[in-house]
Computed example of a mutant assay.
Amino acid sequence: MGGIAARELISLADDKGNSVTVNGLGRDPGWSAGLDAEVVVRTPFVSGRIGLVLSASKLECWATALNRLDVGEDVVWMEWDRGPSISIQLTGEHDCPEVVVEDESGSMVTVRVPLVPPDDWIADHRQRLREVMNHWVPMLSA
């Protein structure tokens, strides 16, 4: 189970070279219930990454966000936490979905990435979430 799917919680990309991923990296050394992770943004113009710590409750909030996206609602994930937040706007400024990564508490940088995910992206991300939770949450509880 330790394959790429158990590592990548979010993987949104298009054929223009734009992508936003959230990768689980391993148990946080400072908090046994935390999963070290990173948000990685890649575009032809700008690329960057920022670390964060995920908990089981943040993963459950991602499940709720996927449910809202599935019924056509925009979402903000991790909006009130320290560290980055991720917004998904289904109809962005360029008439396509946009992923907005904000790091207000750290670098104070916001990156807006327009991209058109595949039709089955929500089902794919539900599967990714199940795999991440099955792989990491038992380790975080131990």
Rank of each mutant, 00 (worst) to 15 (best):
P29F: 01
R112H: 04
G72E: 03
A33Q: 11
R130E: 15
N23L: 07
N18L: 05
V40W: 00
H125K: 12
V46D: 03
T91D: 00
T64Y: 00
P114G: 07
E93N: 10
E104W: 15
D70Y: 03
C61E: 08
T110H: 07
H125V: 12
G106L: 04
K16A: 07
R128K: 07
D15H: 07
G51K: 03
N67E: 11
V46F: 02
R42M: 08
S57V: 02
A63N: 08
R42H: 09
P29E: 07
E38R: 12
P29D: 03
R42K: 05
L35Y: 13
I86W: 00
E38N: 11
D120C: 03
S55Q: 09
G83P: 01
V20M: 10
W31Q: 09
D28Y: 06
G34T: 01
V99M: 14
T91G: 01
D28I: 03
V75D: 13
L25D: 12
C96H: 09
V111E: 14
C61G: 10
Q89Y: 11
M78F: 09
R82I: 09
G34M: 01
R126M: 14
C61L: 04
I88Q: 09
V113G: 08
D119T: 12
V41I: 14
M78D: 04
I86C: 14
D95N: 13
D74I: 05
R27S: 14
T110E: 07
V109P: 05
V71A: 09
G51Y: 03
R112Q: 08
V75A: 10
C61D: 09
V116W: 10
L90R: 10
A123Q: 13
W80T: 06
G30L: 03
R128A: 15
W31R: 08
G30I: 03
A65K: 01
I88E: 05
G92V: 04
W62G: 06
D120L: 04
G30E: 12
E131Y: 00
A56I: 03
Q127C: 12
G83A: 06
D81S: 14
R82H: 05
H125W: 06
G34S: 04
L90N: 07
E60N: 11
G26F: 02
V46Y: 04
E79M: 11
V111H: 09
R130I: 09
V20S: 04
N23M: 07
V46R: 00
S85T: 07
V109W: 11
S107L: 08
R68C: 11
V20Y: 14
L66P: 05
Q89D: 15
H125A: 11
R49Q: 13
